[in-house]
């Protein structure tokens, strides 16, 4: 199931890329294509920030998500003002957009961490049992 989902995501990404490349060749840089390019730029900046926070900090899951939430919101707001997504009247929307992603990410991450820890501890237990039986 995991493999099917991963392959679906990869295939979808390739299809989107092909469609956009053909659209660029066919009709040039339209506003829709520019939006995707801007989103790609934002994703690149956010991934770099995410990597940097994970690399330098040893924060707990909750603390790291709080730090990331504020850092990402600040970047989204700044980027939004630069590319014209946000105005002084609606900049607060960045808090909501980032908040929804952060909450989902936090729960997924916590669940995955818990599962990984359980898996490792189970393997250690079976290693101990195997050593004991030798």
């Amino acid at each position: 199931m995991k493999k099917i989902l991963r392959d679906t995501c990869i295939l979808a990404a390739l299809m989107i890329l092909c469609v956009f490349l053909i659209s660029i060749i066919w009709s040039g840089l339209t506003s829709e294509i520019m939006l995707v390019i801007k989103l790609f730029g934002l994703a690149l900046i956010l991934s770099s920030i995410n990597f940097f926070i994970d690399e330098v900090s040893t924060l707990s899951i909750l603390s790291s998500y709080i730090v990331k939430y504020f850092a990402v919101t600040a970047i989204v707001m700044l980027y939004g003002f630069i590319v014209g997504w946000f105005f002084t009247s609606n900049f607060w929307m960045a808090f909501i957009y980032v908040g929804v992603v952060a909450v989902l990410g936090y729960f997924l991450d916590s669940f995955k961490t818990k599962k990984d820890v359980e898996f490792i501890n189970k393997k250690i237990e079976s290693r101990k049992a195997a050593k004991g039986s030798v």
């Binding site: 690399e55 330098v56 040893t58 707990s60 899951i61 909750l62 603390s63 916590s110 961490t113 818990k114 820890v117 490792i120 501890n121 250690i124």
Partner: peptide
């Protein structure tokens, strides 16, 4: 960032306060 561990000597991984590992 600063530590390499030998998993052969690992007894357990714990999730401690604030979900630290």
């Amino acid at each position: 960032r600063t530590c390499i561990m030998n998993t052969a000597h690992l007894k357990e991984i714990r999730q401690i306060r604030n979900s630290h590992l």
